[in-house]
């Protein structure tokens, strides 16, 4: 899945002030990339990630995915696009607190009953060392376990690209390493990963390393 942007701008209004979170960002992420976005807090990394993932309409400019302008789709089409092509992993996991591990992994079953099966969920849970925690609620899990559940939830629909917003931000080094390994594994199996990070643990795996400042990409490293 090729993702291109041209003059992507996102302005937030805070009272009477306008904050330009993205300032005419232009980039091209080839299919099967592991792209890492880095930069200081408030530079617009997460805004860029969410906008690329079809979760935040830009103020101007557009994102073209495989030749299709993402934000020219209506809300329903964009929602369908997300469900079919993308997976998300967040720093604060965003698991549904009233569902257990297995139910959280299988949440998309409502949308894809044939694709999201219990067998697949159990297999993913096994791969992510969650088998013994299947009936536990998120409140009963460690941070590392929560993030692994979030990864399983993202993987289960077989997305083309995973958008990860500081997925290791709340994790200790051991769990952070495990999460990165899973993302790398996903990438090695042909998927794209676009990840925002403060740390350096994923740098060695990133094919594209973008540095942002004040809403702009100031540096791109391609390995």
């Amino acid at each position: 899945m090729i993702i291109e942007t041209h003059k992507l701008t996102r302005i937030f209004r805070q009272g009477r002030n306008e904050v330009k979170a993205l300032d005419e960002v232009g980039l091209n992420i080839p299919s099967g990339s592991f792209a890492l976005i880095k930069g200081p807090s408030g530079c617009g990394k997460s805004t860029l990630l969410f906008t690329l993932g079809g979760m935040l309409r830009p103020t101007s400019g557009d994102i073209v995915v495989d030749g299709i302008p993402l934000y020219q789709m209506n809300d329903r089409e964009r929602t369908a696009f997300r469900s079919q092509h993308t997976g998300f992993v967040f720093q604060s996991y965003h698991l549904l607190p009233y569902l257990n591990v297995l139910e959280n992994i299988m949440i998309s079953r409502v949308l894809f009953p044939d694709q999201v099966t219990k067998e697949k969920a159990l297999q993913l849970a096994g791969n992510l060392n969650l088998t013994s925690r299947l009936n536990h609620k998120p409140s009963e899990l460690s941070s590392g376990e929560k993030q692994r559940v979030a990864l399983a939830r993202a993987f289960i629909t077989g997305p083309d690209v995973i958008f990860a917003d500081e997925p290791t931000g709340n994790l200790d080094p051991v769990n952070a390493k495990e999460v990165i390994e899973q993302l790398v594994l996903f990438h090695q199996n042909g998927g794209s990963v676009i990840m925002v990070s403060h740390g350096n643990e994923a740098d060695q795996f990133a094919g594209i390393l973008m540095t942002m400042k004040d809403g702009r990409i100031i540096h791109i490293d391609k390995n």
Binding site: G53, M55, D75, R76, T79, A80, R82, S83, Q84, F88, F90, S92, H94, L96, I107, S108, V110, L111, R153
Partner: peptide, 15 residues
Amino acid sequence: QEIGILKALGFDKKR
């Protein structure tokens, strides 16, 4: 946030 994650996962408005 639950609404946000459901939307991110592809649950449409109606659902």
